[in-house]
Design a protein around this nucleic acid. Sequence first.
DNA 1: TCAAAAGTGTTCTGTTTACACCCATGG
DNA 2: CCATGGGTGTAAACAGAACACTTTTGA
Lengths: 244, 244
Amino acid sequence: MKPLIKLASKEEDAKELQYYSKEDQVLLAVDCIIFGFDKKNLKILLVKRDIEPQKNRWSLIGGFLKKSENLDTAAIRVLQRLTGLQHVYLEQLNTYSKIDRDPGQRTISVAYFALIDVASHSFDGIQIDAAQWFNLKKSPQLVFDHNEMVEDAIRRLKRRALTKPIGFELLPEKFTMRQLQNLYESILDKKLDKRNFINKVNTLNILDKLYEKDMSSSRKGSFLYQFDAIKYQQKLDEGLIFKL
Amino acid sequence: MKPLIKLASKEEDAKELQYYSKEDQVLLAVDCIIFGFDKKNLKILLVKRDIEPQKNRWSLIGGFLKKSENLDTAAIRVLQRLTGLQHVYLEQLNTYSKIDRDPGQRTISVAYFALIDVASHSFDGIQIDAAQWFNLKKSPQLVFDHNEMVEDAIRRLKRRALTKPIGFELLPEKFTMRQLQNLYESILDKKLDKRNFINKVNTLNILDKLYEKDMSSSRKGSFLYQFDAIKYQQKLDEGLIFKL
DNA sequence: TCAAAAGTGTTCTGTTTACACCCATGG
DNA sequence: CCATGGGTGTAAACAGAACACTTTTGA
């Protein structure tokens, strides 16, 4: 029996090499641009790199693709390992391949961007002490081509926020209209008119008003809202498109 | 002398392995979705696969990334080698990594989409006899996950065509308004109103009217137009955005 | 003279923008 | 009683959609 199994496994090894054996192989990295939102500002989660080259410089979190997983899985693993976060909005961004992008070794990197609600996720889970939130506008220079990745991610985020209801990923489950507006102002990097914004959001009809107030922001207090995924899905099914 | 050089090269080899030596390496492929436009229909260029696995099935054109090049360069090389085409609109689309996407060997593929003007490019240059244009709506089942790539590419093309003047890449240098409208109708997969379309295009003010007629389409003949990259750039500089 | 495609403006509708005052409350 | 942020509607401007007839000319 054993020899037979061994033989089969050997054949598979052979097969694995058979077709494209003369081609170059490369390292594939996954890097995550993690956006958060805190009160009034978009933030980005960075880490101090703990390996050479460029040890101790600020970097996106990342890791290498294993043969046993696909890229989405790798991105989830990286996020989970380094931040303890799960069930996070993740989207593939772009693949970066400049020859000398990583001076350590020829590496191609697939960037993902992630959206998380800073407040609701306890960060006890953060596995690396060197992780830190930076105000997007005051973030440091990063290793390799990570700055370019962040710029691309910001551009993507702006576009997505206008066409998909992903903004809510960055807010607590319950939020005020003002918080939502602050978020969109941060993402789009411009002031919005209060009345026009609320009117537009209301006509979308994908929020539930909670008749419960957040008293922390003012004496009067402001109503809390919640994203209603079911309403949103119904809108989609009716062919209506999210457009902010 | 010789030993010294050898030593240096040895050191470099060592360095190449030093940092991330325990990580898995993978094959990185590049696959190109090549769109063309002919009279009234969007087309896609496919090839009969000439290697195993799945030999003789229809496939996108592709190739493997070499260590000496970046992905854009690899895409250009693949396109050039298989079609003889150069100076073609190319854009990175997405990276596909399902574990068994290529049963031959673990392969990650970066898809690019390309736009070419079928008419103006002589296809004497096509290096593979098995390459063939297919009407997009009547194209065959493809190998691996190539159908998914094509669907993603179509979605991207629709979006791009509305926000960037890339449609002209698919037309001859001189074209009639009707050709342009047919193109957009094909891309967007819906009928457009003739007067509204022409009015919109004219207000963009990025075309030159040539006072030269194409007599092949009607007895009256129709005026030819040309995309004016300089005008377009000026519009951009003025902060105006292309929006069709 | 007629068939076939080219060319051309106006009205209507819906969407986007600009804009200002009263309300509720805690201190 | 007042300072602070919350909440609300309308009018004007603009952009998008709907729509029909005349022109040219080769056969």
